[in-house]
Simulated assay, not measured.
Amino acid sequence: MNILWDFDGTLFDTYPAYTEVLYKILGEKIEKDSIYKELKVSFSHAIQFFGLTEQQIKEIKTMNKEIDVSAVKPFPGVEEILKKADTNVIMTHKSYAGVTHFLRHYGWEKYFAEIVTLENGFPRKPAVDSYHYLHTKYSIDLAIGDRELDLIPANKLGIQTCMFQNQCEIADFHLVDYADFFTVYPVTDKA
């Protein structure tokens, strides 16, 4: 099985740390739950929703780079799926350095054949370009994400989709916990 993964909110529980950053930038005037909810739509959406200035966006990007790697944990059960998959790839809007920083810390670089970021020149999700590239190269069987925009490109390409800790109509199945993955999506052991 070949899996295309989103990064933030799918492999790693990054949103609590991002919520804290945005909470500080907004002057602690907005409830953290509201910030989290808007970030789960997308970072671009949250920027517009909260009317952030260019200066605030710069501050957020700087503060996000300074998030301690120990403050962001992988979701429980992810590593077992990574081990059983034949090929894993990542498509994310996060920077390559940002992704590899966390992967190295947890010793997970070995699990990924390729990491595609905006630095590769593809348009942002939900454009299909990056997914088409990865699907052509790796014959992707499943795309896993935590937001609808992570699944739209896969859906358009006929790739099966899994929504993690969220709901959307286009997902082929939904997971709240990766412990249920092999029940919902049976995988045989590698030879």
Rank of each mutant, 00 (worst) to 15 (best):
F49S: 00
L52A: 02
T53M: 09
T53C: 11
Q55F: 13
Q56T: 03
I57N: 07
I57H: 07
E59W: 09
E59S: 11
E59Y: 10
I60S: 00
I60N: 00
M63G: 05
N64K: 08
N64F: 14
K65S: 13
E66S: 14
E66R: 10
D68P: 09
V69D: 07
V69E: 12
A71H: 11
A71P: 06
V72G: 01
K73S: 06
V78N: 00
E80Y: 06
I81G: 06
L82Q: 11
K84I: 09
D86W: 05
T87I: 15
V89S: 11
I90S: 05
M91K: 11
T92H: 10
T92F: 10
H93R: 09
K94E: 12
Y96R: 11
Y96G: 04
Y96T: 04
A97T: 15
G98C: 10
G98I: 11
F102H: 10
H105S: 08
H105V: 05
Y106K: 06
G107L: 08
G107W: 09
W108M: 14
W108R: 04
K110F: 07
Y111R: 03
F112W: 10
F112Y: 10
E114D: 07
E114V: 00
V116H: 00
V116Q: 02
V116R: 01
T117D: 06
E119A: 01
E119W: 02
E119R: 03
G121K: 04
F122Q: 02
P123G: 09
K125I: 04
A127L: 14
A127S: 13
D129L: 04
D129T: 05
D129Y: 04
S130H: 03
S130Y: 01
S130M: 05
Y131Q: 05
H132A: 15
L134A: 03
H135G: 00
T136G: 07
K137P: 02
K137I: 05
Y138V: 04
I140M: 02
I140W: 01
D141V: 02
L142P: 03
A143I: 08
I144L: 13
R147L: 09
